[in-house]
Amino acid sequence: MAMIRLEGVSKWYTPQFQVLKDCTLSVAKGEVLVVCGPSGSGKSTLIKCINALEPFQAGSIVIDGAKLPDPKTNLPKLRSRIGMVFQHFELFPHLSITQNLCLAQEKVLRRGHEEAMAKAMMLLERVGLTAHAHKFPGQLSGGQQQRVAIARALAMDPIAMLFDEPTSALDPEMINEVLDVMVELAGEGMTMMVVTHEMGFARKVADRVVFMDGGEIIEDRPTEAFFGSPHSARAQTFLSKILAH
């Protein structure tokens, strides 16, 4: 059964400029999906549509029974069940690391402070940052901040995780510490949708790869098949460019 299902999703910024064209795909429970494609292909926009951070004009999305667009869907509740990790981390700069992890647990899930704190510390240990618990985001490196951001999303006990280019704002030497956390997460059976250029990661953990270009889903195939022989010329060009070195 599909946990996330997109059906003919289309989005226009202006009547002339269409960013998403009739996108249809589904992610099963426990599946890891990697979305790749050249910049401007609409992949970030697509992933943001899934938790309604971006509105879309046509088509529908169903996440674990909740439908978009639907006025009856409680958006904050839906979003709290889907974890999201951003390219630029987006930790809250005025809150300490633990406060970053506790805020939504307390305000959205109404957990008590003790419970939220216990959860926060457990997750910090998992991403290897216990020692930094009382620091502020500005005192951490990019890789550390992104690991905190992953922990912050996990603290909400999400049914699925969305990653929007989680490593593209990082210095090269910090990419692996973040990918390691993501690989571990995939190994535990988390449902994940990852927008990334890290093809090594895709090969290692993705069940399927989706290739987008010009707002369209060009290919949606099992990982091995995709890397073995991509069907489309555009995917081949893309892969040859990013795998050249």
Partner: peptide
């Protein structure tokens, strides 16, 4: 992104 991050966590 700050607005998005808050919203994505389910904050109103």
């Amino acid at each position: 992104g700050q607005w998005m991050a808050g919203t994505a966590l389910g904050l109103t």
